[in-house]
């Protein structure tokens, strides 16, 4: 679907609408119409970041889990196409992970006063970046396509299992500054737990879907390039 021109055009329009809605919908203390968002104490206008920062973390997870699934498929079939898919998914996941880290860090500067606070959420995403940095270091240090594919498939499975823990579990079971951390009940916590008004939820899920489809598009372009490189 995403390879057709219509699909790409629809995705571009979809993401444009998400960005316009995310920036332009007014925030008021008591929303009365469908286009008004609630004023969230403690976050104020910064609450809108959930529409652009969380999808980056979500796509990171989707990419790392796909890399793991392709790794499993490679170990089952020994087909090098799956290795190519696995490394491309991990590469894209790293790009989205860096974007999630940078956007979160800017938000942290204005919410917590510093770009980096070693909050559990920041620490966990930093560890995730290190894990996938090591994945690419491992790949570049192994000679021989078969051996490289087998070792990196095994590594991507272990790394993929840790990704949901570092993105969803660890930051919620530890107390910290990030909304939704253990013990954070008031203020921004309801937003982090997705207790949002329906109109904000619609924009949020539209953003998740849009960026996921963008990932699918980028993945398909990257795969086509990798396949061409293989034949050269």
């Amino acid at each position: 679907m995403i390879r057709s021109t219509t699909g790409k055009a629809l995705l571009s329009i979809w993401l444009t609408l998400v960005i316009v809605a995310g920036l332009a919908m007014p925030m008021v203390p008591v929303p009365r119409t469908w286009y008004e968002l609630p004023w969230i104490p403690g976050l104020e206008q910064k609450a809108r970041i959930i529409l652009f920062h969380v999808p980056m973390a979500w796509v990171t997870l989707v990419a790392f889990i796909s890399a793991m699934v392709y790794g499993i498929q490679f170990l089952k079939t020994k087909n090098l196409d799956y290795d190519l898919k696995s490394v491309n998914a991990a590469g894209l996941g790293t790009v989205f992970c860096i974007l999630a880290t940078v956007t979160g860090s800017i938000w942290a500067k204005f919410n917590w006063g510093s770009f980096w606070n070693w909050d559990p959420r920041e620490t966990s995403i930093f560890i995730l970046l290190l894990i996938y940095g090591a994945y690419f270091a491992l790949r570049s240090s192994i000679e021989g396509a078969e051996k490289r594919a087998a070792l990196s498939a095994a590594y991507s499975i272990i790394a993929g299992v840790t990704a949901p823990f570092f993105i969803f579990v660890m930051p919620r079971i530890m107390s910290g500054l990030h909304p939704g951390a253990k013990g954070d009940e008031g203020g921004a916590a309801p937003v982090a737990q997705l207790h949002m008004p329906p109109n904000m939820l619609v924009v949020f899920f539209a953003s998740l879907l849009g960026f996921t489809m963008l990932y699918v598009w980028l993945f398909s372009v990257r795969m086509r390039i990798s396949k061409l490189e293989e034949h050269h």
Binding site: I19, G22, L23, E44, Q45, K46, R48, I49, F52, H53, M56, V95, I98, L99, V102, T103, I106, W107, F110, L214, L218, V221, R222, I225
Partner: peptide, 24 residues
């Protein structure tokens, strides 16, 4: 002017993906 912070974040996503597009 916190709306500009959100705009910065949208622009960072945009430039990040654009840089990636240039690379591929």
């Amino acid at each position: 002017n916190q709306l500009y912070i959100v705009m910065c974040i949208v622009l960072i996503n945009w430039f990040g993906l654009l840089a990636y597009l240039f690379r591929i």
